[in-house]
Structures are given as structure tokens and as C-alpha cells.
Amino acid sequence: MNTFVDALGFLRDNPALIWEKVVQHLQLAGAAIGVALVIAIPIGVILGHQHRGSFLAINAANIGRALPSLALISIGLGFLGVGFVNVMVAMVILAVPPLMTNAYVAVDQVDADAVEAARGMGMRPVQVLTKVELPLALPLIFAGIRTAVVYVIATGTLAAIAGGGGLGDIIFNQPSYHLSGVIAGSMVIATLAFTAEGIFAVLQRALTPRGIRGREPEVDAFIEPPVADVTRAETARV
């Protein structure tokens, strides 16, 4: 129990250090999520719109979940060297699959009647996509973003072994910061992950069109696709 008191003491005594590492951590996570969004969302949305490539889109999440993060960082280290870029690339690889799978499932499973009605009203395919499919798919796309953000924040701890900075610098350096520092760093990471999860949950709710609010049941288990929202995670694990 004493260790936890020490950890709180560590937080109180080193605000500048913690702040510096938090900023690094969030910069890394933000950059990785940004790049991953640009790659994953268009692919997922287009495949979902065309109802094609389901094998690729759905299995992406399974493969992404299987990839060991430490191994990705170590392979990246061999080819990209030490630093921010290597870790960011590894984190992009981890973030793309849940984003893409959720975007695909979200658009693919939009009510076929709604799409048909839109076509009957004379909408062009692009209009069907932007005015019908995307708004209806938004909640699930956001669920994917939420998962990816939490995952990237947790994995960001490992950045420290490849010179990427962040809170891992404290957690991986018990000789300098002692066990109290390790615990303090972990508490900060868990807090960041939960905060991010909360913010995105609120955003998700706000972006859900009124017509379909409360219709989607919360998935309460880690079940695979095509059950939507699969990769939902309330995790801060690395």
C-alpha cells in the first residue's frame, strides 16, 4: 500500500516531468491516429459502400489484434532506426485494422431499405454515400476510433524502448524513478486512456442521428466480426 502513496507523492513532486512525458505521449498517439485515419477510413468506407472486399476488411481487425506490439516496434527499429517515426509507423499499423473494420462494417450494414429509398428519390451514388450511408454509419465509425485511440495510448508506453519518448520513459526506467515512478506513470496512462475513451463515447453519442439513437445494443463481449463494434476495448494494456 505504501508504494501507492509513494506513487502519489511522485506525481506531486514531479509535475514538470510528468507533463513533458504526457505531451510527448499524446503527440505520438495523435500523430499515429491521424495518419491511421487518413489511411483506414477511406478504404473502409469505399469497400463498405461497394459491399466488396469483406474478407479483407473483416479479417484486418483479427490480424491487427494478433500482432504483438513489441515485435512490430522491434522490426521497425531495424528498418527505420530509433525515434519518433519508427514508433509512429508501428502504431499506425496497430491502429489501422480496427478503424478499417469498423468503417467497413458500419457502411456495409446500413439499412438496405434506406439506401434503396435514397436511390428511388433519384440520389446519385455519391449522394447516397454522403447523405445516407455516412450519417447512419457514423456512430460505429466512431466506436472504431475510440478503440484505436485507447489502444494507441496504451501501446505508446513501448515507444520508450525505441527512443520515441512518452510516459514509457518513466515506466521502463525503474532504476532512475523507482517503483513509485513506474506506478505513477501507469496511473497517468490509465487515466489518459479512460479520459480518451470517455471523450470519444460522448462524441459518438452526439454524432448519432436522432432516428437511430438507442437502437444499437451495447455489445458486452469480445466477439468477432461480423458482430459490429467488436474490437471495443476498455483497455489500457500494452
Binding site: L158, I183, S186, T235, A236, R237
Partner: peptide, 8 residues
């Protein structure tokens, strides 16, 4: 338990 970063 699941929320504790593994390295910690």
C-alpha cells in the same frame, strides 16, 4: 487488472 499497463 486489464487496465494496468502490462509493463507496470
Amino acid at each position: 487488472v486489464y487496465t494496468i499497463p502490462s509493463i507496470a
